[in-house]
Amino acid sequence: MLPRRIYQFLIIFLLGIAVLFAVKYLFGLSDYVIPSPADLRDTLAAVYKHYGADVASTLSVAIIGQVVSIFLALMVGILGRQTTWFGSFIKVAAYNVQAYPIVAIAPIIFILFGDGFFSRLLIAAMICYFPILLSVLGIMSEPVKEIEHFYRVTGRMRWQLEVKIRAFENLNKLTTVISGSATLAMAGTIVAEFIAANAGIGYSIRIALYQSDLSKILVALFLIGITLAVYQGLLEAAGRMIGKGVTVTR
């Protein structure tokens, strides 16, 4: 599964590059518009270490951001599962925050927290938590009647048990959403870095843009893509292992 993700990404990326080169040679465009293969190779050799470290930095922020957002989504989802006034209040607040474009909120975040690690983390978490929240809310507000009935009528139901039952029954859905949200966490971190941080691959992309250097951008895209493919593959594998662990010990 993991190797498949990687070579699928490579196929997509190479196809994209091939289209670019085709356009370049078909229309006789200069290296300034679309870099030549040699250009690309030289740039890759020159920046791969530096960009690799940047991508690693971005990925680490994205991973932490994802963990934070999973917690956040679980918390909001658990609080918001109740059909009480407070439950609906939590839901409305969570939806509203998501309705604001992150580029509009980002300046406030950067003014409050500076342009360091925390701001990147917060923005990454904000971007990737919503899909998780939606599925957690969906899962948590949907009773599993045929399991919960006994505990309810015998007075044994506690909120922890309710959450445990609903999460366990929807484990597959949850792991799918979580591995899917990795992409969003990564994209969120890059956006944050692009807007205002001073580290990470998003920041490097911004500099490359200042210098109109498309080959650097292509190298960055390649590194981001391959890293994301590996990370997501690992998450999926982990999700399957959790699933298997459950069935094996059954």
């Binding site: 045929e146 399991i147 006994f150 009528v153 366990f168 459950v246 059954r250």
Partner: peptide, 13 residues
Amino acid sequence: LLYSYNLERLPDW
């Protein structure tokens, strides 16, 4: 007073 039915399940953990 308790009501039980045949489609009920126990958690699988």
